[in-house]
Every structure is written in C-alpha cells, then in structure tokens.
Amino acid sequence: MTEYKLVVVGAGGVGKSALTIQLIQNHFVDEYDPTIEDSYRKQVVIDGETCLLDILDTAGQEEYSAMRDQYMRTGEGFLCVFAINNTKSFEDIHHYREQIKRVKDSEDVPMVLVGNKCDLPSRTVDTKQAQDLARSYGIPFIETSAKTRQGVDDAFYTLVREIRKHKEKMSKDGKKKKKKSKTKCVIM
C-alpha cells in the first residue's frame, strides 16, 4: 500500500485542523484551538488504489514558523489553505509557496490551493482571484467548507493525484537520464 505524506499549511484560523478532522473523523470542530502540530493517518481508496494518507496539520501562528522547514522537508505534497473571508490569509499563500519551493529546492512541488469556509456569506476573496492565482502557479484550486464537508475529500484526493503525477514524471525523467548515460565512448 502506497503511503502519501501530505502537509496542510496556511495562516492561523483558516480551518486547516477543521478540514483535516472532517476528512479523518467526519465531524466539524467549530471551536478554535490553535494547533502546534498534529499528525493523522487514514486509509482510503483513490482511483481504485488503496493508500495510506499521513497528514500533518501544522501551526499557522507566526511564533511556530521555525518548525516549518522541518515538516516541509518531509512532506510530499501540500494543501495551501486560505479562508475566503480573510484576504490576508490569501496573500500569505505566496509566502508559504515560496518557502516550500526553497526548502524542497524545487520549482515543481505537488500543491493544491484550497479556499476554505465557502459556506460563509462574508467572502472577501473572489473565486476568480483564487483561480487566477492557482493557474499562475500551475496547481489545482478547490473551494471547501469544513463545516458542510463540501470539497473536503476532493481537496485531499486531488493532492494525492498531483503527487502521483509528480512521481510518474520524475521516474520518466530518471529513465531518460539513465538511457543517456548508457551511451559509451570508444577510443581507438
């Protein structure tokens, strides 16, 4: 069974824990209790493949930012979460993405942009803004509501699919490099 290491990042209060708990335990946590770091595991079937999701729910508070490099190193894919009623959390996505790329030393890291709290009427981040940002990053965008469960499975499952595509691409690139290195030079 394939294991996928997913990391949920975003500013404090955007609903990272609520999304994760909704996926794992099928219930909505409405009281806000700032996370330092929590880890969850769940076995699911995605596109006919049974897999184990190892999900790291991270601290959004700035005082825990020193811990970010460590979990970013171990993560295979990242859910970059903002709240649709919090423009600052949307603007912060850029910083999370840049930090992930720096730590992973790669421009090509599996990510999904997630606009959470889409059940709320007080939207300050337009869907088109988020779609445009995701398009500019070359990553999928999904709106979710941890409260109603809308888009929750889709967000995590899409990230797994992005990781699969990335692994497939990397193995193809690896095979191309191996083929090239088999060419021999004969000096007579």
Rank of each mutant, 00 (worst) to 15 (best):
G77R: 01
S65P: 04
S65R: 04
M111H: 00
L120S: 12
V125L: 09
I100D: 00
K88N: 11
G75Q: 04
N116W: 00
G115V: 09
M72V: 09
T74F: 06
L113P: 00
Q99G: 04
E98S: 05
H95W: 08
D92W: 08
E91V: 03
M67K: 06
E98T: 04
N86I: 02
R123L: 08
I84V: 14
R123Q: 12
I93G: 01
T74D: 14
M72I: 13
D126Y: 08
E107V: 13
D119N: 13
D108A: 06
I84G: 15
K117N: 14
V112A: 01
N116D: 10
M72S: 08
I93A: 05
S65Q: 05
M72F: 14
D108P: 05
F78A: 02
E76W: 15
G77P: 01
Y71P: 09
V114G: 01
I93P: 01
V125N: 11
S122H: 11
V109P: 04
Q70N: 10
Q70M: 10
M111R: 00
H95V: 04
Q70R: 06
K101N: 06
L113N: 00
D105N: 12
T74C: 09
G77V: 11
E76C: 15
F82I: 08
D119I: 02
C80V: 14
S106A: 10
C118K: 05
V103K: 12
R102E: 07
E98N: 04
H94R: 12
D126A: 07
N116G: 07
S122N: 12
E107R: 08
R97I: 15
I93L: 10
H95T: 08
R123A: 13
T74V: 08
L120T: 13
Y71L: 14
C80P: 01
G77C: 05
E98G: 02
C118F: 07
M72G: 04
S106M: 13
V114P: 00
T124F: 09
D108E: 10
V109L: 04
D105W: 03
Q99E: 14
R97L: 15
L120R: 06
V81Q: 06
M111Y: 02
V114T: 01
E107W: 11
D92I: 03
V112Q: 00
A66T: 12
T87V: 08
G75H: 07
E91H: 05
C80K: 01
Y71M: 13
P110E: 02
I100E: 00
R123V: 10
L79Y: 03
D69I: 00
K88D: 13
D92G: 04
S65F: 03
V109K: 03
I84K: 13
L113M: 06
R102I: 08
R102M: 06
A83R: 06
G77A: 11
D119T: 09
G115S: 06
I100L: 10
S122T: 11
E63T: 04
Y64N: 09
L113K: 00
N86Y: 02
I84Q: 15
F82G: 15
H95Y: 11
D119G: 12
G77L: 13
I93F: 13
R123Y: 09
H95P: 02
V112E: 00
M67I: 11
K104E: 03
M72E: 07
Q70T: 08
D108M: 07
Y71S: 15
E107I: 12
Q70C: 07
E63L: 02
A66G: 08
G75D: 02
S65K: 04
Q99R: 06
D105L: 05
C118P: 05
F78N: 00
E76M: 15
R102A: 10
I100G: 02
Q99Y: 14
Y71R: 08
A66P: 11
Q70E: 13
E107M: 13
G115K: 01
K117G: 13
V109R: 05
D105Y: 04
K101M: 14
F82K: 01
Y64Q: 12
E63D: 12
Y71Q: 15
A66I: 11
D105F: 06
N116Y: 00
R68Q: 05
V112I: 12
D119C: 10
D105V: 05
N116R: 00
Y96A: 05
A83C: 05
K101F: 07
E76S: 15
